[in-house]
């Protein structure tokens, strides 16, 4: 596919956590999209969707950054987000946040259909699994998939990541028990209720280990930061990677 006027365009909302802590995941996402023929744009003015403040009840403090986001993406076409929770913030929770601000609410609702989580875009819109020879094999690998909560329950995305993983030659997808159960991150919950969060994390790690895999894959760096942080502390020898990275290694 060549870069013509017919190329699919997408503006990347890279999310603050990837921008600041895991920029390599953003780079991987860009490479994958480009390889699929997408003309990727990046609006430098982007900062944060506002979720950290919103989830903690600071709606007034979340509004300015959320408003700026709605403004900057208005009329800009596809917005691709490598995070289920940030995509859900834009598509679902802006309805709550701006319930008393009719004008912004209207514009947020107009933006929503153009917002795609990364695997939704790659699978549903770009049909990556159907492209012959798109992915090449590397050393064989066993992975398990962790279902990030907002991705699954707010956006309804659970088949696309699995179908993408299964289309990778040499990669075996092993389902772990309780894959759909929350990892225990929950933003500030992981610090405010650290003991409960740790107990949930330990269960998740035990389930990952029971699957006997080389890596756990997910669509949200928030989950992966928490799961990966725990795996590293326990020296489990299992990688925690974003699905964009898994695809990028083989595209």
């Amino acid at each position: 596919m060549n870069q013509t006027d017919n190329a699919v365009k997408a503006s990347l909302f890279v999310t603050c956590i990837i921008d600041q802590f895991f920029p390599e995941v953003g780079e991987a996402a860009v490479r994958v999209l480009r390889r699929l023929g997408v003309d990727v744009e990046f609006d430098q003015s982007q900062t944060c969707c506002g979720q950290p403040a919103f989830n903690n009840g600071f709606w007034n403090d979340a509004k300015p950054t959320a408003r700026r986001l709605v403004d900057s993406y208005e009329g800009e076409g596809n917005v691709v987000v490598p995070s289920g929770s940030c995509a859900a913030m834009l598509r679902v929770f802006y309805n709550e946040l701006f319930h008393d601000e009719q004008d912004t609410l209207r514009r947020a609702q107009a933006l929503a259909p153009h917002v795609f989580e990364f695997t939704e875009f790659v699978s549903d819109v770009l049909g990556a699994e159907n492209r012959e020879g798109l992915f090449h094999a590397t050393k064989p690998m066993r992975v398990t998939y962790h279902e990030s909560c907002h991705l699954k329950r707010e956006l309804g995305v659970d088949l696309q990541p699995r179908s993408l993983i299964k289309s990778l030659p040499g990669v075996e997808l092993v389902e772990m028990p309780q894959a759909e159960v929350c990892c225990g991150f929950g933003g500030t919950f992981s610090v405010k209720y650290a003991d409960i969060s740790a107990a949930m994390l330990n269960d998740k790690i035990a389930n990952i280990q029971s699957a006997n895999v080389d890596a756990v894959v997910a669509g949200d760096m928030s989950c992966l930061m928490h799961i990966g942080g725990g795996l590293e502390k326990q020296e489990a020898g299992i990688r925690a990677i974003h699905i964009a990275q898994l695809l990028d290694e083989r595209i």
């Binding site: 890279v14 990837i18 921008d19 600041q20 802590f21 895991f22 920029p23 953003g26 780079e27 990046f42 430098q44 982007q46 992981s190 610090v191 405010k192 650290a194 003991d195 969060s197 740790a198 994390l201 330990n202 930061m225 928490h226 990966g228 942080g229 725990g230 590293e232 502390k233």
Partner: peptide, 21 residues
């Protein structure tokens, strides 16, 4: 500290994505 009791925490990237773009 509640975080690091049970998990390692990543360092902030010296070159965030927006710089790499």
């Amino acid at each position: 500290s509640g975080w690091t009791k049970h998990r390692k925490f990543p360092a902030i990237a010296s070159k965030p994505f927006r710089t790499r773009w």
